[in-house]
Design a protein around this nucleic acid. Structure first.
Length: 234
DNA sequence: CCAGACGTTGTT
DNA sequence: GTCTGG
DNA sequence: CCAGACGTTGTT
DNA sequence: GTCTGG
């Protein structure tokens, strides 16, 4: 799954990489993005051929939710079932987005031991998670946009650490994934595959990343693991 | 008909 | 909102 | 995802 | 253990 990630590139770099329209919001590099926080997402404008960046709360709040209490459990949606579930079904058909990132964290557990790893694509550059979004009217009448990151079975790199991984889209499938006119969920679901392990890398990182208040480059800096911890790789 | 649920992951 | 259970 | 909190009633 | 906050 994916419960913590990194987006450390500057706004202009994100705009250029994903070929979006200019964005009014600010974005400061983040190394430890946590559920319920505000994150950039990319959507296709429904009428004009333009991709737009938009801040959303991470943890999808369905339009019919009474409150936000369940949102933290909706940070991920299983790609195998999302098309059929009440909370995600309509979003899968009509409200897909990209969630830009340049790293994500997974924790490997062995009994009580817990070791975080940082995963990257290529040399640590930008990539996009497949995302779903919805909007919910809060008690004051304000619309709150929120999003979820799809998950799938792990590839050979991530399976050593965890039994799920986030869906990372190939750049050549961005257009189809984002196309609001594509409502054939069967076609859409074809895109939700484990990313090529040979194009990814990972390494153990400091448990600093465990604490959400730590949000700096140290969170994804590789660390040595001790001999005893080394068995975590086994 | 109304009432109530609607989710993921991990752990075992 | 939609779907299920009673 | 992890970290951290987690509580009622009655009596004085 | 479960639930909330970030």
């Amino acid at each position: 799954m994916c419960g913590r990630y990194r987006l450390s590139r500057r706004k202009q770099i994100i705009e250029e990489h994903f070929e979006t329209a200019d964005w009014q919001e600010d974005w400061s590099p983040r190394y430890n993005i946590a559920p319920t926080q505000s994150v950039p997402t990319i959507r296709q404008h429904p009428k004009e051929p333009v991709r737009e960046l938009s801040l959303m709360r991470w943890g999808l709040i369905p339009s019919w939710a009474k409150d936000t209490s369940g949102a933290a459990r909706m940070i991920n949606a299983r790609s195998e079932t999302a098309h059929a579930l009440p909370a995600f079904r309509e979003a899968m058909k009509l409200r897909r987005c990209l969630v830009p990132a340049d790293g994500f964290y997974e924790w490997q557990r062995r009994g009580s031991a817990k070791q975080p790893f940082c995963f990257e694509v290529g040399d640590g550059g930008l990539f996009a998670f497949a995302g779903l979004w919805d909007r919910w009217k809060d008690p004051s009448g304000q619309w709150v946009k929120s999003c979820s990151i799809l998950t799938t079975i792990p590839n050979s790199l991530t399976s050593a650490i965890h039994d799920r991984m986030p869906v990372i889209l190939q750049p050549d499938s961005y257009d189809l994934w984002l196309d609001p006119g594509m409502t054939n969920t069967q076609v859409i679901t074809e895109l939700l595959k484990p990313y090529n392990a040979r194009l990814m890398r990972c390494c153990p990182v400091s448990s600093r990343v465990n604490h959400v208040e730590n949000d700096d480059v140290e969170c994804s800096r590789p660390v040595e693991v001790s001999k005893t911890q080394d068995s975590l790789f086994a």
